[in-house]
Simulated assay, not measured.
Amino acid sequence: MRWSERRAAARAVLEGHDCVHPASVHEPVAARIAEDLGYELGMFAGSTGSLAVLGAPDIILLTLTEFAEQARRINRAANRLPLVVDADHGYGNALNVMRTVEELEVAGVAALSIEDTALPRPFGTEKPVLIPLDEGVAKMRAAVAARDDASLVIFARTGAVSITGLEDALARVRAYNHTGTDGIFLTGVTKRAELDALAAEAKLPLVLGTLSDEISDRNYLASRGVRIALQGHLPFQAAIQAIHATLKALREGTPPAQVGGTAPKTLREAAMREADYAEKARRFLG
């Protein structure tokens, strides 16, 4: 599937009436599995990118080049799954945001978000802080101006609810409505009263980066204009646990044949697209 077709599929989600949960993917095999399971979207986050590429926590050590290259690898391997990526703060000011959009568009992503958090965390601050609203607006407008393919989806992202409060979040939503972005990505929303107020001000589809029990009902989310709701990044956490358990068992002397929890041959072959490569070998290697 070409990039434009994947971007059209992502836009179809935004233009629909349902709320979907994307698959958290961090590398090619995870993306292929998500594709085979029929997920509408894949989600590649800055946090899982930092873990997968650097083995580092989500403290903005990953560079744009590293992030875009990992996104490219994912898109090459899973050739139908539309990939949504969290581009953090755009790796700098508004001009850096433009470079970020250019690199991720070429990497084949279907959608990306730019947030208004001051990142990396400034010296002397103990908690996250936001950039001024006018700077946030400029960064969102710069992101829109930078895209070459008009079908690329761009989200304006803010965590204001949990950082500066609901009133500031409402002001930012009102401002980001008019930046040319295609949706508003909210984090830190945990209560229905918060989402109700924000949805009332939003003129664009909503994406939620956090879910609490109080707001997790998909029918409720859909009624508030939420079209994408993340469920965290459990696949990566499960992978860490599986690798640890397997290596520990082997280290302690468990015979390989007795180590449980490994993927069956059919699943491994499907994830590797072994049948496709075998057919290509037959056709072109004789």
Rank of each mutant, 00 (worst) to 15 (best):
A138P: 02
T65L: 00
R73A: 13
L112H: 12
I114M: 10
M43Q: 15
I184V: 12
L81E: 08
I114Y: 08
A45C: 12
E105G: 05
H244L: 00
R147C: 03
E126G: 08
S50M: 04
S223H: 11
A160I: 01
R76N: 11
E214L: 06
D276L: 11
S113D: 09
G260L: 03
A34M: 08
K248G: 00
P82D: 06
C19A: 13
L133Q: 04
R80Y: 00
R283C: 07
V153Q: 00
F67W: 03
I154G: 03
A145P: 03
T158K: 05
I33A: 03
I60V: 11
H17T: 10
A257E: 08
I74D: 02
V226I: 12
A199I: 01
I163S: 12
A78Y: 01
M272T: 10
L112D: 02
K280R: 12
R80S: 11
V53S: 12
T254L: 13
K280W: 12
G232F: 01
R268W: 02
D148W: 07
S24K: 00
Q231Y: 06
G46Y: 03
S4P: 00
S216Q: 10
L64V: 09
I215C: 01
E105R: 05
R121F: 02
A146P: 11
E40H: 09
V29N: 05
K280Y: 07
A110Q: 02
A238F: 09
E126V: 11
T210V: 10
V144F: 08
M1R: 14
N96C: 15
A9Q: 13
S162W: 04
L285S: 12
A118V: 08
A270F: 01
V84N: 15
L130M: 14
P28L: 03
A77V: 05
R192N: 10
T187I: 09
A77Q: 08
E214Y: 11
A193V: 14
E252W: 06
T187A: 14
L112Y: 10
L221P: 14
H17E: 11
L221A: 13
L206D: 02
P264G: 09
K191L: 09
R172C: 01
I215V: 13
A107K: 02
D86S: 15
G232M: 03
T266R: 06
D276E: 15
Q70S: 07
G286H: 06
G90H: 10
V84K: 14
L130Y: 14
R268V: 07
V129N: 12
H89E: 06
V173T: 11
A146V: 02
G261L: 11
Y39D: 01
R141L: 07
A242L: 05
D182H: 15
G55H: 06
S216N: 11
A249M: 09
A71N: 05
E15F: 04
R73M: 05
V189H: 01
R2T: 15
G253A: 06
V25I: 04
G180V: 05
L83F: 10
E274P: 01
T63Y: 02
A31Y: 00
T100M: 10
